[in-house]
Design a protein around this nucleic acid. Structure first.
Length: 159
DNA sequence: GCCAACGTTGGC
DNA sequence: GCCAACGTTGGC
């Protein structure tokens, strides 16, 4: 039996969907739609389970930073945005009877008092192997080790 | 805006 | 199945 909960990190561009958007959403929950990368999909489809905790990261902003925590509120189901021809993430190769893309629901847990910029995370011994900090890392849904998750929360001054 | 790193596509 | 070309991501 794999240990639970597992820990994750998701990236989002705050101009598109920020942690404040999540906090304001109905039931403070959103579907994590639009992921179109197979490895990220596999994590969502196969490994993210109810109650897993998720670091919330803002990319393509100044500074890029981990800004809070969410939790998995619903396990994987088909990403319906792949079926909407008007959606930016429409994928004609994802038929309704054999969906290619999946998503989970994420629920707001907390926003850090201060964002933790990438620059502050780099060089921390506990985070030396963290996927987020690897050069060239682009994975938008990635696993986080328990010790890494704990180190990030400690740095943020929260539990 | 640049560009390195990475993923995907498609000709062969 | 190889790999060049292309598109995307995302820090800087």
């Amino acid at each position: 039996m794999a240990e639970r909960p597992k820990f994750w990190l998701v990236k989002t561009e705050p101009d598109c969907f920020s942690i404040d958007d999540l906090a304001r959403a109905p039931r403070q929950t959103t579907c994590w739609s639009g992921v179109r990368n197979y490895q990220a999909r596999n994590y969502m489809r196969d490994e993210m389970k109810l109650g897993d905790r998720v670091l919330f990261y803002h990319s393509s902003t100044d500074p890029p930073a981990i800004v809070g925590v969410a939790t998995v509120a619903r396990e994987s189901y088909p990403d319906h945005t792949a079926w909407d021809a008007k959606d930016d993430h429409y994928d004609p190769k994802s038929p309704q009877d054999n969906p290619r893309w999946f998503m989970v629901d994420l629920k707001f847990e907390q926003k850090f008092a201060e964002p933790l910029p990438l620059e502050r995370l780099r060089g921390l011994p506990a985070l030396q192997e963290m996927e987020l900090l690897r050069k060239g890392s682009r994975l938008s849904v990635q696993p986080v080790r328990a010790a890494e998750f704990a180190a990030v929360l400690k740095l943020a001054g929260v539990k």
